[in-house]
């Protein structure tokens, strides 16, 4: 059996009366691209925040490559937060310099290549960019890192079609090499499902189904049908 990237055992997280995660059990093997799917409020972002040590579980156990999440394990994680923005005073060049300084494994050469591929002006200031361009900058900051785990929380929210296509092309280019574990949560299933090796379906803070995407397609006809059936 291969290495486990993320392990969650009976994880619970409450916000007041709301249970964001409710006895979540999940094992994500290393080296796979995993779609973490589910409706709003199903616990996807809370799970990602827990893996990156932003929040702590009220109960249960979380492990990232066998260690408790925290600032040390974040060396190995490239994380694109949900609804994130970038420092508006930065140019693309400055953002890359920032990443070079603070984010282990960041490759400037790779970032420049991706910026050219995504048609980003290096001297462009983030405050003057569209949301789509800003999303591309943030995606580059994540995928230009050579780290074993990449987490992208809703990378397509509020992004125009052109930017979305650019981002997906870059993802295909960078993350499908089997060397890294990639977790992506998204509602735009049609466009990215081809990327996924595995899918995890969450509802009310629990895993209601998980498995190999080929197997899920065989069982439900398509990933979209699987979603429709599971969240009926």
């Amino acid at each position: 059996m291969g290495e486990t990237a993320v392990l969650c055992e009976q994880v619970e997280k409450r916000y007041g009366a709301n249970r964001a995660l409710d006895g979540l059990d999940l094992t994500i093997p290393a080296g796979r691209v995993v779609g973490v799917l589910g409706p709003n409020g199903s616990g996807k972002s809370t799970l990602f925040r827990m893996i990156t040590g932003l929040v702590r579980p009220d109960a249960g156990r979380v492990r990232v490559f066998g260690k408790a999440p925290g600032w040390r394990t974040n060396r190995d994680i490239a994380y694109l937060p949900d609804r994130a923005r970038w420092y508006s005073d930065h140019t693309v060049q400055q953002a890359f310099r920032w990443a070079e300084t603070f984010l282990p494994g960041f490759s400037r050469e790779e970032a420049l290549r991706l910026a050219e591929f995504m048609k980003l002006p290096l001297d462009g200031r983030v405050r003057d960019m569209s949301r789509g361009q800003e999303a591309r900058v943030m995606l580059i900051l994540c995928i230009a890192r050579r780290v074993p785990l990449i987490i992208l929380d809703e990378p397509f929210t509020g992004i125009d079609t052109v930017s979305r296509e650019k981002i997906i092309d870059a993802l295909i280019d960078r993350v499908s090499d089997g060397e890294r574990t990639v977790l992506i949560s998204t509602h735009e299933l049609y466009e990215v499902e081809a990327l996924f090796d595995l899918a995890v379906f969450l509802e009310s803070g629990r895993v209601i189904r998980s498995g190999d995407t080929d197997e899920l397609r065989r069982q439900y006809g398509s990933m979209h049908s699987a979603m429709q059936t599971l969240y009926r």
């Binding site: 600032w71 937060p81 994130a84 923005r85 970038w86 420092y87």
Partner: peptide, 15 residues
């Protein structure tokens, strides 16, 4: 307020 907290707090350095 600027939406950068996720980047800041997941930096691999002690709080």
């Amino acid at each position: 307020k600027n939406g950068t907290v996720g980047w800041w707090l997941t930096l691999p350095y002690p709080r």
